[in-house]
Design a protein around this nucleic acid. Structure first.
Length: 417
RNA sequence: GACUCAGUAGCUCAGCAGGUAGAGCACAUCCCUUUUAAGGAUGGGGUCCUGGGUUCGAAUCCCAGCUGAGUCA
């Protein structure tokens, strides 16, 4: 390139390039500033890269009921976000999306719990709010792109005259948040930028400190995004009634016997679904406050002692209002060889790679945020996608998303049934 | 009715050749973590069934009572 510029014959090209730089307006990016370090540093980096950057803070939740005391309010976050924007010399706006957030995330959450499933509201928040409603707000402001502080990367390439976007894991293996974006589509991805995805968390902290951003030492946010850290049972009790029911212990040998199924396609039904425990499969050992407050793999909150090893929830039945438990970390009922995603729930980010009926492929799968990837065989059938893990997975939970990766690329995802 | 065994933290139990108590589970707090869980660390908890007695001293020995389980009739 440099050589070309010094070459007299390229003078024309050079002129055209310069012209285009000055005549073309700077690309405009709206960054979702949350008041945390990650989005602050993302904003700074965008500015460094020469974008015309505007900060937009979104309010998604006003209600504080159920929120743990000592947590920050959105007012605190907005104030700090504004300080960051000021420091970086960029326009700052606030948008209130709480009505949409309630309808599209919180209502979904309650609905799922009422069905005895365990939703992932943050995956929905990204699909429905940040990269939909919020994205549209950004476009209204004239943005070419929307940026967030997520730890993930995007890559694009041309294929058959079309641009294909890839969602890649964040470089920091400890912070990778690609999973939370597992429900995005090509259109959403095409307008997204993830400026901190190639950095390690300590580097982000360092940049924030060097730039003296007000968020440099701010603690990372946790809990349901926007709602904050809540005590879930009491949060859920706003809408879900407490109803005492029986806790039934499933003996390990019973579960072991039921799991003795060969890993062949004929047995998909048995391999990929939760075993439907019945009250007579074990004995009553206590009471709970409502089956919909518990989730698979849960240990805390049972309030049942007297066992040599801890008790874990291995199944819930909201209709009968029963929760099934097993004793010991390695209880066989805690492990399952596979899972199933019904056809309507299958989502490919890489639509060009979608599997066809009858097809079989090998990918790596993650069944919840921060779970290690597990080598898995995927079988596409008319009714859905059957997945069989090389190693049995612990605590497969309906309502959570299974996301399949090819190396560092997240190809698709779907809700576990 | 007689006999045997048991009655120790919220639960299941250990301690019992006498010197004022431990473990696991449960629970709480903190750490980790933008879901839910899990995981890690720390911690709070006991009239040792009741009443007598022996002893310098009893959860530990003796007696009586109460409660529970079982055996025999």
């Amino acid at each position: 390139m440099t050589g070309c510029f010094s070459d007299p014959c390229c003078k024309h090209a050079r002129f055209v390039l310069l012209l285009s730089v000055y005549s073309q307006r700077m690309e405009k990016v709206v960054i979702g500033l949350s008041g945390g370090v990650d989005s602050s540093v993302a904003a700074y980096l965008l500015k460094q890269q020469g974008y015309d950057v505007t900060a937009l803070f979104m309010i998604n939740w006003h209600d504080r009921t159920g929120t743990l005391t000592g947590q920050c309010t959105w007012e605190d976050d907005a104030l700090i976000a504004e300080m960051v924007a000021k420091k970086l010399d960029m326009p700052f706006h606030i948008v209130d999306l709480s009505k949409d957030y309630k309808q599209r995330v919180v209502d979904y959450m309650f609905d799922e719990y009422s069905k005895g499933r365990t939703p992932n509201p943050d995956v929905l928040c990204n699909r429905e709010i940040k990269f939909d409603i919020f994205l549209n707000e950004c476009l209204k402001l004239g943005a070419d792109y929307v940026a967030t502080g997520h730890y993930c990367r995007k890559s694009s390439f041309a294929h058959d005259g079309k641009t294909i976007h890839q969602l890649l894991a964040g470089t920091d293996p400890n912070k990778d948040q690609s999973y939370f974006l597992c429900q995005l589509n090509q259109d959403q991805l095409s307008k997204s930028l993830f400026p901190v995805g190639g950095l390690l968390k300590p580097e982000v902290r360092r940049i924030a400190a060097e730039q003296q951003l007000p968020t440099a030492t701010r603690k990372d946010s946790q809990g349901i995004c926007f709602v904050g850290k809540v005590d879930l049972p009491s949060f859920l009790q706003q809408q879900l009634q407490a109803r005492t029911g029986n806790v039934i212990e499933i003996p390990a040998d019973f579960a072991e016997k039921k799991k003795n199924v060969e890993k062949i396609p004929d047995n998909f039904k048995k391999l990929c679904f939760a075993y439907p425990y019945k009250p007579w499969n074990g004995k009553v050992i206590g009471e709970h406050r409502g089956a919909h407050f518990y989730t698979i793999g849960q240990r805390k909150g049972l309030s049942i002692g007297g066992h040599a090893d801890p008790l874990f929830v291995v199944g819930t039945d909201v209709k009968r209002n029963i929760i099934y438990v097993g004793e010991g970390t390695e209880h066989p009922a805690l492990y399952r060889p596979g899972l199933f995603i019904p056809t309507p729930e299958i989502h490919w980010i890489r639509t060009d790679l979608a599997m066809k009926d009858g097809e079989t492929r090998h990918y790596e799968v993650r069944i919840r945020y921060r779970q290690p990837l597990e080598k898995t065989t995927l079988y596409q059938r008319k009714e859905g996608l059957y997945m069989i893990f090389d190693q049995e997975q612990r605590g497969i939970t309906a309502g959570q998303f299974a996301a399949w990766y090819d190396g560092e690329e997240l190809l698709g995802s779907g809700v576990i049934i």
